[in-house]
Design a binder for these strands. Structure first.
Lengths: 345, 345
DNA sequence: TTGTATGCGTTATCAG
DNA sequence: CTGATAACGCATACAA
């Protein structure tokens, strides 16, 4: 910067003014400075600027892991949304470990970012207090802990109910649930299960514990395991509701392996509508949570919090969802009478 | 830091010494300082440290997009590898756009990171000069441009040849290739196609242009399109080699849709061995490129470059690969005689 | 419209 | 072993 000032024959302050677009500056001066900048290939030292301004232009995004397609796609969307505001995203993987999630909140890296978008998975009710942090924080997912922070989510209960209703509407009666978390009451698993049970009850169907498959982590492998266990016990089913698409794809895998025809014998629906879903064999019906909308909203909310323009109380945003029907629930043989296009819930 | 020093009754420099693990420091002093740090909840200001040290503790990772599973999994691995060294990863998405890839190299964000791991896709031979940058850079993928930078890659040619040989070994003769880039000579597409052609020629089989399916972007959708086009022209095939798994999964999707039985009528193999592959229906054979090894090597190489301990000439690392056989090529009916476990190439 | 001087929070130098 | 003090590169209050 000194060199640039010297070359342009101005003071360092003027260089700063030019860089930051200060308006009251003589065109010819500006031109000279810009020429010098180009000539010297000068670039602002962001560390110095950060130190001086106290802001970093970076936001954190903490997710379980990028190898889970849903979070990869979410990260993609968040990065794009942040880019719109000239922000850089710094991704942290928690591996859904309680310890790592607490670390994220304790904010070792807090000084690196202006705020954090956090999708917690492992933290439970007992960790409620940890969410009351003194930096801008937006939570993704249901307002889990009576929320001492802003949060953005779709209604898990409503969406799960809609998915289950879709199965019921296509004639299914013995609907297995894959991905339950026994004993949990506030997480996505519990909420989605609640929606499932509501749909059954509303339709006058019983809630059969034999149809509830546990799966701690929502991976393809755990979905496959849960499906296999259920089939092994001889439980009779005509549909599967995977609490996310990875679970559903795992289930699909096992069904294929056992020679069960989808959807003729068993219909399958997932949740998240990751890109995989559309290309599964058969294509997987799912619930689309409006990923882009979630990402954009979260970034906006976080920025408002950073800028101090957000309301004092914590904000809660509920985003839209959509039940997307594909061959896994509405196969050729069943398709007659069913809508050919995605159904908006 | 001042406050901590005051509370502990020492100078600010001593606090710094304690934080940075300077050895020659009286235990009781250290203890006092640590108590003060805990008491005040003090955390170092990373921006200030960066400014002072000229290093940021962050490295950049530029990939096309995270919604492509291969790059999501790669990012996952790179983040883990970087973590081992106490580094933070900053992900940038190029969308495989030439413009964005050049931007990444022009280094607007250079001062934010100590170095860059870059997986280019759009840049071609004519951009060769842009890779000669004055900051630590490690390229992922084949040494594309006579490499004015370090790079880490597996041998695309060898791996593609091995994949094709596997198809030939299981009795396939009309092997379609999906994902070709017409006219390209240096990118992954060209190299993998070369391996495919070598395998055919070695086996005395003809290289039939009708079997080459173009697909610019390697997405599921483009793979599906290419497969559909080829089937529409009535080209006779008994196997498909997707130049990556997304393409192969797209192809699988179309085959399923047309009622073609995999692998009985047509065998399918992909490339990358993303997690999806194992859970496709049927499970997809693929080439595993040793993702973890690539990530770890790239990070190590970059750090050596940052530390200045790397050799003056540019380094080229070739990583291992493995042909993983699954049901899509070795179905129940064909499996007899074929190895039951992954074959190491 | 432009220049001067100061401090952001650290770490490094060099005495003591 | 510890302390005083000078940078690091920038943005801003204040002057001119």
């Amino acid at each position: 910067m000194h060199d640039v000032a010297a070359m342009a024959g101005v003071s360092i302050k003027t260089v700063s003014n030019v860089i930051n677009g200060y308006p009251y500056i003589r065109p010819e001066t500006k031109e000279r400075v810009e020429a010098a900048i180009a000539e010297l290939g000068y670039q602002v030292n962001i560390s110095a600027r950060n130190l001086r301004q106290g802001r970093t232009g970076m936001i954190g995004l903490a997710v379980p892991e990028l190898s889970l397609p849903y979070f990869a796609e979410l990260a993609d969307s968040v990065i794009r949304a942040a880019e719109q505001h000239g922000l850089i995203v710094l991704i942290e993987q928690t591996n859904a470990s309680r310890e790592r999630e607490l670390e994220v909140l304790s904010g070792q890296r807090r000084h690196l970012t202006d705020g954090l978008i956090f999708s917690p998975l492992a933290l439970g009710t007992e960790d409620r207090a940890h969410f009351a942090v003194d930096f801008p924080l937006v939570l993704l997912g249901e307002r889990i802990f009576g929320g001492p922070a802003d949060h953005v989510t779709m209604s898990n209960v409503d969406a799960a109910r809609a998915a289950t209703q879709h199965l019921i509407a296509t004639g299914r009666r013995r609907i297995a649930l894959i991905g339950a978390h026994e004993g949990e009451t506030v997480g996505s698993a519990a909420l989605r299960q609640r929606g499932y049970e509501q749909a059954l009850t509303d339709a006058g169907l019983p809630v059969d514990p034999a149809l509830i498959g546990e799966a701690g982590l929502w991976h393809r492998s755990t979905g496959a395991d849960a499906m296999a266990r259920m089939l092994d016990t001889g439980t009779e089913i005509d549909a599967v509701f995977g609490l996310n698409d990875a679970l559903a794809i795992g289930a699909l895998h096992v069904l294929h392996d056992r020679g069960v025809v989808v959807p003729d014998e068993v219909a399958v629906i997932g949740f998240d509508d990751i890109e995989d879903a559309a290309y599964a064999s058969p294509p997987l019906s799912s619930v689309a949570p409006g990923r882009e909308q979630i990402a954009a909203t979260a970034v906006d909310l976080l920025l408002a919090r950073v800028a101090g323009t957000a309301p004092a109380e914590h904000v809660e945003v509920i985003t839209d969802f959509e039940v997307v029907t594909r061959e896994s629930t509405v196969g050729a043989s069943v398709r007659a009478g069913a809508p050919a296009r995605p159904v908006v819930a």
